[in-house]
């Protein structure tokens, strides 16, 4: 059954359905509904929701809960995610599966609360200190947001890495019909023999990101990067729309992806052969499919609510085989389909 649901609330409900039983967060617009939803609904399923004293505390509470073997979520918006970065680096180092939702707003600094995509670098290139990556999933509809939250818990557990949902204020605040996936039965959540459950009948478990011996630590990180390579091989997700005969492919993610879908439809109506390539996993970035596409598409127009961040990954993927112009907006301004279509028309003619 479809229900009309706000993006933030759909993501929160999806987390509960994914078996998330602890949530730690701190108020920041435009994602407060996640914290509020969890406060209202987690206790009913035997879970715990704590409004933490800071983002720093919240992410470290997640660290504890994940170490205890329980599925756990935190959410915030850009400035709050910056504060969480210390903890996120520790999660990556200690191999803890935590799902982090970033409902992006415009920055840098306090910026404003309007939708933006300026945290792409932070999300996909590490963000915190050290050699690590996050699985980064970018939903473009409320439906997809719910589904990707559930997937994020699954992937985080499977690979023992933190995973991030990179949404924005538009997606968090909008309501859209959504068909919520059914709850995951507890027995389908994989056991975690490494978790801190009390050293009963087994040697003690230690959750740590600490190793003073460079050679031993190198081996640990090599193991981590083996996992990352496996993720890069097996978990790349993207969507192509009308790319078959396209003379220009728009590359956009998240809410810009859905707006660009409208652009494609309008362009096609005008006889312009335009397609859309929408990365769903921002890390791992779908470089290979984009590279394949670049063998026959002459122009890739990247559209972002930023000064051009994903654009760098697009250019690395296309690697000079096609033109790679950029169109972006800053400060929380969202371009209209008309504006993007006008940009498209600089490169293709009907």
């Amino acid at each position: 059954m479809k229900v009309l649901m706000r993006g933030n609330e759909a993501m929160a409900e999806a987390a509960i359905r994914a078996g998330c039983r602890t949530y730690f967060g701190y108020p920041i617009t435009p994602q407060n509904e996640i914290l509020e939803y969890m406060a209202a609904h987690l206790p009913a399923v035997g879970g715990a929701c704590v409004q933490a004293e800071s983002e720093v505390a919240a992410i470290n509470m997640c660290y504890g809960a994940a170490a205890a073997g329980v599925r756990t979520l935190t959410s915030s918006s850009s400035p709050g995610i910056s504060l969480k970065m210390e903890g996120i680096s520790y999660l990556a180092g200690a191999r803890l599966p935590v799902v982090i939702i970033n409902v992006m707003r415009a920055g840098p600094g306090l910026g404003n609360i309007a939708p933006a995509q300026g945290d792409y670098f932070q999300a996909t290139k590490g963000g915190g200190h050290g050699d690590y990556r996050l699985i980064v999933l970018a939903p473009s509809t409320v439906q997809e947001a719910a589904e990707l939250v559930m997937l994020a818990f699954e992937l985080a557990d499977r690979y023992r890495v933190p995973a991030m949902i990179l949404a924005d204020g538009m997606l968090g605040q909008m309501m859209e019909p959504v068909e919520l996936p059914p709850p995951i039965p507890p027995e389908r959540i994989p056991p975690k023999p490494w978790a801190l459950t009390g050293a009963k009948g087994r040697p003690p478990n230690v959750v740590s990101s600490f190793d003073l011996d460079p050679h031993r630590f190198r081996e640990i990180l090599r193991g981590l990067w083996d996992v990352y390579r496996q993720i890069q091989r097996d978990e790349v997700r993207w969507e192509e729309y009308q790319t078959e005969d396209a003379e220009l492919v728009l590359v956009a993610y998240g809410t810009m992806g859905r707006i660009c879908r409208t652009v494609v439809r309008r362009a096609r109506r005008e006889g312009l052969r335009v397609g859309l390539f929408r990365p769903i996993t921002l890390w791992p970035f779908p470089s290979e499919p984009l590279r394949r596409l670049s063998a026959r598409v002459p122009v890739f127009l990247t559209v972002e609510l930023s000064a051009g961040q994903m654009w760098e990954d697009v250019r690395l993927s296309v690697d000079g085989r096609a033109q790679t112009p950029f169109y972006g907006e800053l400060g929380g301004v969202v371009p209209t389909p008309e504006e993007i279509l006008n940009e498209v028309k600089k490169y293709v003619r009907g």
Partner: peptide, 13 residues
Amino acid sequence: RACAVATGIKRAN
């Protein structure tokens, strides 16, 4: 962050 981590562990279990 120990008290925050401890909070997470205790609330989880």
